[in-house]
């Protein structure tokens, strides 16, 4: 894969947001089944209600995975050196998740271009579900 244009991005650059619409209970169930994380708060409505919640809520790691897809699509999976997600608010059934990011730092050393990227995942009301950051390392050698 050519990474030519990836070396010449600038601080302030963004990629178009990733929008995941109508994330619903079925998505929580599918993620539980695929990941092995069967925390009842995400998939068993009575358990969530017993715990004082209005309904089940999304696994934080599902929203984190949307963030990871955004970064991998933008920079290439192989160039992601670090990814951090902080869980700020809960994702409720039916919400739409919008992931966006911005390059906040660029550095070049030897044959490597590095970026620090700030990331955010928001719900339809603009509440921050996840704030995060990533380090990207592009090997410039042909």
């Amino acid at each position: 894969m050519t990474s030519e244009h990836l070396e010449s991005l600038s601080v302030g650059d963004s990629a178009p947001p990733l929008v995941v619409s109508d994330v619903d209970r079925i998505d929580f169930v599918k993620y539980a089944g695929a990941s092995g994380d069967f925390n009842p708060m995400h998939v068993v409505e009575p358990a969530a209600i017993d715990a004082g919640r209005e309904s089940v809520f999304g696994p934080g790691m599902l929203t984190a995975a949307f963030v990871s897809s955004y970064v991998a699509d933008w920079f290439g999976l192989e160039n992601v050196a670090r990814l951090r997600t902080r869980f700020e608010a809960l994702l409720w059934p039916g919400d739409t998740v919008r992931v966006s990011g911005e390059i906040v730092e660029r550095s070049v050393e030897d044959d490597r271009t590095s970026y620090e990227v700030d990331l955010v995942a928001e719900n339809g009301d603009g509440d921050v579900l996840i704030s995060g950051d990533a380090t990207i390392e592009i090997d410039d050698r042909p």
């Binding site: 894969m1 695929a34 990941s35 092995g36 994380d37 069967f38 790691m61 984190a64 995975a65 990871s68 897809s69 970064v71 991998a72 290439g76 999976l77 192989e78 992601v80 990814l83």
Partner: peptide, 22 residues
């Protein structure tokens, strides 16, 4: 085509460590 040695897994794939099998 993208230069990988095989099919890569998504970045958060190791969450599957939750399965008792692993």
């Amino acid at each position: 085509e993208r230069g990988f040695d095989g099919i890569p897994a998504p970045l958060t794939f190791t969450r599957v460590h939750m399965f008792p099998r692993y």
